[in-house]
């Protein structure tokens, strides 16, 4: 049964799905661009890294360093990938949301 620890917050959920979608090309810039393109949400770099830090602590994602590039001032990219715990958390959240949505239509919500 899902406990509070394994429950994903909305923004955590968004970031995990974006990282999953980007496969091995997920790093700060691409994650922000993808979120903007897909759901038109502007995410600040600070908010992104604060959440990524939390997801790493929960072992939902892991990071690896890329090669330094000149357009980044000689700094390396930090790529993120999902761990099996992260995939499990996503699956659990999806299952919970599917259960909550089952049998519901938005037309029936307004009485």
């Amino acid at each position: 049964m899902a406990n509070k620890e394994s429950y994903l917050g909305e923004f955590e959920h968004i970031i995990l799905l974006t990282i999953m979608r980007l496969k091995d090309q997920a790093y700060g810039v691409t994650v922000r661009q993808q979120i903007k393109e897909l759901i038109d949400r502007d995410v600040s770099i600070g908010a992104l890294y604060a959440t990524i830090d939390r997801l790493e602590k929960k072992s939902y994602i892991k990071a690896r360093s890329g090669a330094p590039t000149p357009e980044r001032g000689g700094r390396a990219k930090r790529y993120f990938t999902l761990t099996s715990t992260g995939v499990e958390a996503l699956q659990q959240t999806k299952t919970s949301l599917d259960k909550l949505w089952s049998g519901l239509t938005l037309n029936s919500a307004v009485q």
Partner: peptide, 20 residues
């Protein structure tokens, strides 16, 4: 002001976006 552990990543991302 930002933690050393993610300083390079954040500054790198910002610089990359600036140049892009």
């Amino acid at each position: 002001c930002i933690p050393n552990t993610i300083k390079d990543e954040i500054l790198g991302d910002l610089e990359e976006e600036f140049n892009a």
